[in-house]
Design a protein around this nucleic acid. Structure first.
Length: 286
DNA sequence: GCCCAGGGAATCG
DNA sequence: CGATTCCATGGG
């Protein structure tokens, strides 16, 4: 990986990384596609920093940021220093995962902000991705702080002072009471999410599920996308279909440490590739 | 009008 | 225990 600075922009040469697939595979919700005919381009916010990031082949161009923030935030956020070839050599022993990697093997697991990830996946329940993005944007615009022509994600302290009536403007519906419970428990210190990194995964699951609206599936998403627990394994409707169709005899056991990564490749593959599974499996009529 | 969406809580048997 | 039902909202 080569890093250089060119007239305010930061150029990074990467291998086996796809910006588009990474930001478009349903693990994050605040990146806007502003691509043109030549470049894949996305604009977004993470950790209260604004970024425009473009990719053409092996070249990544970071705009509206600094070399300091590149090393402090973005290199980590996009998980650019992890050897994914090594991970894939383990999980692609399974034929379905191998096909998923051939379809979109440039996906990386993002290291997102834990609090934002908790809210995002509470909002995700019984919802679809375009609407999740809209609701999260409503939260930021309504309750976040304006900076760099965009908005921060509102803190638990801010949200804990709001009423359900005030939150209703976000259109999150019945999920607002779950967001409020999370904001209250975390801002009061009743739930201390800073301890999760030092917990074993079952202990972390139990802590997260003490928040209303966080069940088996959402807790796995939070652990995978907000705490980089690559062994967390979210089972949503799409993964259920994959388990039904590809894994009648069970999911491979020898990839347990990276099954979250495998899960994300499979999720993106069967959700966005028309011929991944038969039409009748893309419905809930089994 | 119906079904569905990166589900979970409450209730029922 | 497992199985059902309800929950808000908007797109197809």
């Amino acid at each position: 990986m080569t890093v250089s600075v060119n007239d305010e922009d930061i150029n990074v040469i990467v291998e086996g990384f796809s910006l588009k697939d990474t930001l478009d595979c349903g693990q994050c919700f605040r990146w806007k596609n502003i691509s043109n005919s030549e470049w894949d381009c996305f604009e977004g916010v993470a950790y209260n920093k604004h970024l425009v990031l473009c990719q053409k082949e092996n070249l990544l161009v970071f705009k509206d940021t600094s070399l300091d923030d590149y090393y402090k935030i973005w290199q980590e956020y996009f998980d650019l220093t992890t050897d994914y070839e090594s991970i894939k050599s383990i999980i692609t022993k399974d034929i379905t995962i191998k096909k998923s990697c051939e379809y979109a093997g440039g996906i990386r697991i993002l290291k997102q902000d834990p609090w934002e990830t908790i809210c995002s996946f509470i909002i995700s329940q019984n919802n679809n991705i375009p609407r999740i993005k809209g609701i999260i944007d409503n939260y930021c615009v309504t309750f976040g702080t304006r900076f760099d022509n965009t908005y921060s994600f509102p803190t638990p302290e801010i949200l804990s002072t709001k009423t359900l009536d005030q939150l209703s403007i976000t259109k999150a519906g019945f999920r607002n009471k779950y967001i409020l419970d999370a904001a209250q428990k975390i801002s009061s210190g009743h739930v201390d999410i800073s301890k999760i990194n030092d917990m074993d995964i079952d202990e972390a699951r139990e802590l997260l599920r003490s928040i209303k609206g966080i069940g088996p599936k959402v807790s796995e998403c939070i652990l995978l996308f907000g705490f980089y627990r690559l062994e967390a394994f979210p089972i949503d409707v799409w993964i259920k279909r994959a388990l039904d169709y590809f894994y009648k005899d069970g999911f491979p056991q020898d990839i347990t440490q990276y099954r979250g990564v495998a899960q994300q490749y499979i999720f993106h593959y069967i959700r966005t590739c028309e011929e991944a599974i038969p039409k009748e499996y893309r419905k809930n009529n089994l």
